[in-house]
Design a binder for these strands. Structure first.
Lengths: 296, 296
DNA sequence: TTTCATGTATGCGTTTTTGTATGAATTGGC
DNA sequence: GCCAATTCATACAAAAACGCATACATGAAA
């Protein structure tokens, strides 16, 4: 077992990122360094890990044999990182929060200001993505999600239930002839959120005869989708608190029940013992609590 | 996950060896290096791993939390080493063989000479110990054992079945009055091998009324035990091939059936694909084969 | 108590590693 | 078919890590 463990990490990054250059970027090192590390590892192990084929590398069967165990090593390293952060009781340091971009853009900022005032030593990094970041891989420390996480290693708390409704620009509603019943929306354009059918299911649940074809416009980004709505490109779903601040949209079919959007605050079990992360976690929970002086 | 993986290895070695100095010896590094690596790791993780208490270190509860995952990382590293060696098809390099010291001293040498002649590029290292080295932890590449291994990752081959009998120096037999029946050995002194009761069970199986008290002398080392026998300190068990080369001992109760001692050649499944290790493995098997020109 | 063995931390010179700059080679697009 | 954009490898200077020597502390033994 006399090889350099950092070179294993270099190998893992190269496999996962697909090239030495990408691995170097991911690890915050230079490409020549990665090149040398891989070469040295190959020399140490006495086997060829990659075949240099023009632009880029191609992993060899020998290298492929190792990947499984290399991944196991990386996973163990991630668990070390988690456990260590959980034991790290410093009040200062980085905390990475992930949230849907709608939450990140419209709901999070006042909460963050609150945390900054309370603990100036804490650096906050917001990862605004609708992809579910994997807390177990340490892609973030705290996540705000709209679904209850199923992973047993995570702890989650329902901190808020937003109400959301259909909104559109008056110009768009005028163009399609202001709808008064759910049936009137059969041919309307809806702005899609992501690849999933969750929105479609929600629409049909409240009686709107939508189909896959009802979503001619989609965007992974919630803010982009919302801008499309404001610009009159179609009908979209938005949390009522956020829409209330936008005078250029109006609610579609106000008599419809609307949707309930739960907000789950989530972190890793190990991280919950960290004072720094616990502080941010509790502050976020307090911000969303009904009694909070910060109103949404 | 932005800590130095080599520092994790340093931490693991320190935990397993018990001190920085011992860890440095185990890793082939200097003690100041280990000291700095641990300090740097503590700084990176933001937690204290050890408490410096005068002479030596004492692991903290935080450090203890990490050990489990650090071990997992080390185990993965070992598996990488195994898989890589299995894929390493170089004919030159090290091969570590472990065997009971009796085998190592009396049986192995001619086989090793054979291998050396066949493949001069191969370095052979013999680990002579009666403790069962763990092939899965890469304590050796090939093992000669007297038991069939139970681990599923290992492949084993019964290459020989030695016959062993009771031997003693004539002087000792004269002192206890040359025994003619198994019952005559009730009060005899036997030289024990190890902590187990295997020898005792073997003696009672062939009708010798031995008890725990029959083993006033024991040695972990088979060669030491055999020397005790030759010097007239008691009765011992030895493979007939070896005893035949010792004119200063004689067989006790030649009519007794004796023991069968199987010799299992064992290696790790992953290593069996390595040309270098396969060569040694096959050569050892050939040496023990009945048709071999190297007679035991 | 003194002495010795063991173990950790620090200063300094040297070796090793890393990053920047550059070149060679290849793929994809126009 | 050519140009632009990537990607990997090498040269050289800067930075980091390492080992040696040493100082200091502790526990066991004489």
């Amino acid at each position: 077992m006399h090889f350099d463990w950092n070179q294993i990490r270099a190998f893992l990054a190269t496999v996962e990122e697909g090239s030495l250059s990408a691995a170097a970027r991911a690890l915050g090192q230079s490409q020549p360094t990665l090149s040398r590390q891989i070469s040295a590892l190959e020399a140490d192990l006495g086997i060829a890990l990659f075949e240099r084929v023009g632009r880029g590398l191609e992993i060899t069967p020998s290298g492929l044999d190792l990947v499984e165990h290399v991944r196991a090593m990386g996973d163990a390293a991630t668990r070390i990182s988690l456990a260590a952060s959980g034991r790290n009781h410093a009040i200062a340091g980085k905390v990475r929060i992930t949230a849907s971009d709608a939450l990140a853009a419209h709901v999070l900022p006042p909460a963050l200001a609150h945390i900054r005032a309370k603990a100036p030593g804490i650096e906050l990094e917001i990862v605004a993505t609708n992809a579910l970041s994997d807390l177990r891989r340490r892609e973030a420390d705290i996540a705000l999600r709209h679904q209850r996480p199923t992973e047993p290693d995570l702890i989650a708390r329902l901190i808020h239930t937003s109400r959301a409704s259909l909104y559109a620009a008056p110009s768009y509603l005028a163009r399609i002839g202001t709808p008064v019943t759910a049936q009137d929306l059969a041919d309307a354009d809806f702005i899609g959120f992501d690849g999933s059918d969750r929105l479609l299911d929600g629409l049909t649940a409240i009686g709107i005869p939508a189909t896959q074809a009802s979503f001619p416009l989609k965007s992974e980004s919630g803010t982009v989708a919302w801008e499309m709505v404001r610009k009159g490109l179609g009908i979209g779903v938005m949390m009522d608190e956020v829409a209330a601040a936008c005078p250029d949209v109006m609610r579609v079919l106000p008599d419809l029940p609307g949707f309930e959007i739960p907000v789950w605050l989530t972190t890793h079990r190990e991280l919950h013992t960290s004072r720094r992360i616990r502080l941010v976690y509790d502050a976020l929970a307090a911000t969303f609590a009904p009694s909070s002086h910060i109103n949404l």
